[in-house]
Design a protein around this nucleic acid. Structure first.
Lengths: 257, 257
DNA sequence: GAACGCAATAGTGTCGACACTTTCTTGACG
DNA sequence: CGTCAAGAAAGTGTCGACACTATTGCGTTC
């Protein structure tokens, strides 16, 4: 039994990334980005054990940069590390996601509050400008673009809060929920509401209406959450539909996160 | 000039950790803990470039586990990584710290809110019990103990919020500001206030007084911040006082954080 | 034929080596 | 004297190899 269901190297690579033979272009960084992409796109499935040698062959580098990337991803919550047993893809549980959304809501509301307090009119105008520039075609853009634009909107608020830590936190959270948001946006069930939400948030910012804006944001995110509930079911279906055998359970307690 | 001011291996090691010759005890994890300790205790100074080979020799392991540890520490904001130039100790700037405290305040207030909302009476009683058990000798404990107890108190609130992400976030933040908190506690300037603050917060939790408790927390942390301002000056003095030549500036932009 | 070991296999954790890049030193030139 | 360039030294990034651990598969025993 050399290998049966095991995918051969290259078959899980995103189309964009081909194996590089020449030595250049920072392997560790590239590995990080590629693996991250694999995780976001479910090419590596939840709970699955990550085989370093296989991954290394696939990316055409040695295990060293792979492990460095995986360690970074572990700190960021994408994978978990169990000593002597290796890395596992973070599980795809509903509760975990809701916790993450809750955290996101906390961070964003605080950011909005601070932005109203500290940003000058020019900066608020940057927010308005950002949204005005994309609002027109918004709903008709491809999912990936919508996702980027939406994240950009919220990240801009975090940036205008004047506290870079908030920006960083939100970036990290975004990365972790991107995979599900992508699916959710493909649903397109509530994208219309999203547009009006964003516009309303901008308006509140211009009015410096802290409480109103915070409430809007909270609702906006909560709405996203409920949409996510449905999307999650689809995701589970999508991920495990090719009758792939469910990854085996593992004992032991993963380290950190 | 082989080495003059360069510290020889072993002279920066915390007394607890001696070089292990035998192979066991998970080198990467141990390296992580040791380096983290060095950072917290200013044995590695802000802005300083980290020499991997030197560190490896000091810890008695090869560079591989060192690099794994440093990558983790980079994700957690302790050090930064500039490609081809290596790891640098995170800088010790006032603004950065204030941002971190602000984030901490946001997380903690949200956690308190959620705790009041979701924790049952038994859980609230755990908080009361935790504080009752340590309140007596609190002010007379050694700084490290106070720090652990204080962090434990706040972490317990985060835990009782029912959202593990909040707990994780707060843990990460705590780790990053621990070095300065330690110095600040040695000051002991406001430890008395701290005791009454904690008691008041517990009381608010028992009353399920969300707004009151949040306000107390906010003040509690703000007070800590102002104490930190002073502590920071001391820290800078302490760190750079042995007339150590200031680490040289470096060009280039560090990656991530 | 189910449970239990035991050998074989697969996979992680760490090492030392080396290529490439950055930084320091030295010495020629203005 | 200061500037610059070339070479030397130091240091990072990656590799392949190997030791040790976990897992799988097989044969034995009850």
């Amino acid at each position: 039994m050399t290998e049966t269901s095991e995918p051969t190297p290259t078959d899980i690579l995103p189309s964009g990334a081909e194996i590089e033979t020449r030595r250049s272009a920072d392997g560790s960084e590239r590995a990080y980005n590629t693996i991250r992409k694999l995780l976001v796109e479910f090419k590596l499935k939840p709970e699955e054990r990550i085989n370093e040698v296989h991954l290394a062959k696939t990316l055409g580098v040695s295990r060293t940069p792979i492990r460095e990337a995986l360690n970074r991803l572990a700190s960021e919550g994408f994978v978990s590390l169990t000593p002597n047993r290796g890395f596992f893809v973070r599980s795809l549980s509903t509760e975990g996601l809701l916790d993450l959304y809750e955290l996101r809501s906390i961070i964003e509301c605080a950011a909005f509050r601070l932005m109203c307090d500290r940003a000058d009119d020019d900066q608020i105008d940057r927010l308005r400008g950002y949204w005005d520039a994309i609002v027109d075609g918004y709903r008709d853009h491809p999912p990936d673009v919508i996702l980027t634009e939406d994240e950009g909107f919220h990240l801009l608020i975090a940036e205008l809060s004047g506290n870079p830590e908030l920006f960083n936190q939100l970036s990290a959270i975004n990365a972790r929920i991107r995979f599900i948001r992508r699916i959710q946006i493909e649903h397109r069930s509530h994208n219309k509401n999203q547009v009006s939400s964003h516009s309303a948030i901008v308006a509140a910012a211009i009015r410096r209406d802290v409480e109103g804006g915070v409430e809007l944001l909270r609702q906006h995110i909560e709405m996203t959450v409920s949409a996510t509930q449905q999307a999650l079911k689809d995701a589970l279906l999508k991920v495990f539909s090719p009758s792939e055998p469910t990854a085996r359970k593992h004992r032991g307690r993963p380290r950190s996160a």
